[in-house]
Simulated scan of single mutants.
Amino acid sequence: MNNFEQRRDRFDLFNAMESPAVNLSFTMELPDFRPWCKAQGLPPFHVLLYAISNAILKIENFRYRVFEGEVICIDRLIPSYTVVNKNKDLNFAQFAWSDDLLEFVARSIAARDHAEAMTELNDTYHAMSPREWKDQVFVTCMPWLDLTAIEHPMASVSSPDIPALAWGRFRDGPDGRLLVPFSVQAHHGFVDGYHIHLLAQQIAAELSAIMQG
């Protein structure tokens, strides 16, 4: 938490505002990991989710949360993302973390299938304790859209401390790269544009490491 104390004055500044959220949308450049996924028989969404989740854990600013009026730093994640069910309605998939890529993907797929098959809202998050709630990162993917911007709903406008990430349709980039429209919403008391830049770099590094084995 020493790093946070160095920016506590920034936190106090933004946290006193009616909405301290920062929203930034940009085109993220990644190594094209889709051929690797195809060769391994792994769905790209779940591999990217794994890379993003690991990147978040490696950048401390994305692990800060507000709990019972105090700033804490989480050390684990509970992945949570949106799916579309058979009625074309939104639902939520949530699963327990695993450090192992194959196990992470398997759990993610099982959570997706469960949420997609439900007609009612998957409200398993209601069983979480207030502290467990803070271990989440919210994710949504809209592969049909060339995403340019998004604003996520928040339980409390005054406390957007759980980051919300979104991405849209993949596009081929130059030199075998992949272009991904990407959006980050976070508490500006914790995260600046520079940290979002670091997150994008770390996601690319995580994917490169995955492909290199």
Rank of each mutant, 00 (worst) to 15 (best):
N2P: 06
F4M: 06
R8S: 12
R10N: 10
F14K: 05
F14D: 01
N15E: 13
M17P: 00
A21Y: 04
A21V: 11
S25T: 15
E29Y: 05
F33G: 04
W36C: 11
C37L: 04
Q40T: 06
G41I: 10
P44R: 13
P44T: 14
V47K: 01
L48F: 13
Y50F: 15
I52K: 00
A55L: 07
A55Y: 04
L57Q: 07
I59N: 03
F62A: 03
R63Y: 03
R65K: 07
V66T: 05
F67P: 05
V71L: 03
I72V: 11
I74F: 01
D75Q: 15
R76S: 15
I78L: 15
I78T: 15
S80R: 08
S80L: 12
S80I: 05
V84K: 13
N85V: 03
N85E: 04
N85L: 06
K86R: 10
K88H: 12
D89P: 00
L90M: 14
N91A: 09
N91R: 07
A93V: 08
A93C: 08
F95E: 00
W97C: 01
S98L: 02
L101S: 04
L102I: 05
L102M: 08
E103D: 12
F104W: 03
F104C: 03
F104Q: 02
F104R: 01
V105H: 07
V105D: 07
I109P: 00
A110K: 10
A111E: 00
R112E: 15
D113R: 12
A115R: 00
A115Q: 01
E116A: 08
M118E: 14
T119M: 11
T119K: 12
E120Q: 15
L121E: 12
N122K: 10
H126M: 15
R131A: 11
Q136K: 14
Q136F: 12
T140N: 11
C141P: 10
M142W: 08
M142P: 00
W144E: 13
L145D: 11
L145F: 14
D146F: 09
L147A: 06
L147F: 09
T148Q: 15
A149H: 09
I150S: 11
E151C: 13
E151D: 15
H152V: 11
H152G: 05
H152T: 11
A155I: 09
A155Y: 05
A155E: 10
V157M: 14
S158C: 05
S159Y: 04
A164N: 05
A164P: 00
L165N: 01
A166C: 14
A166I: 07
W167C: 02
R169N: 13
F170G: 02
R171I: 00
D172P: 00
P174Y: 01
P174H: 06
D175F: 02
D175R: 09
D175M: 05
D175S: 09
D175G: 07
G176Q: 06
G176R: 04
L179Q: 13
L179D: 06
L179R: 12
F182P: 02
S183L: 10
Q185C: 11
Q185R: 10
Q185E: 12
A186H: 02
H188M: 05
G189L: 03
G189H: 03
V191S: 03
D192L: 03
H195R: 07
H195Y: 10
H195P: 07
H195I: 05
H197A: 15
H197R: 13
L198N: 08
L199E: 02
L199T: 03
A200P: 06
E206H: 09
I210Q: 01
M211K: 08
Q212A: 13
G213Q: 11
G213T: 09
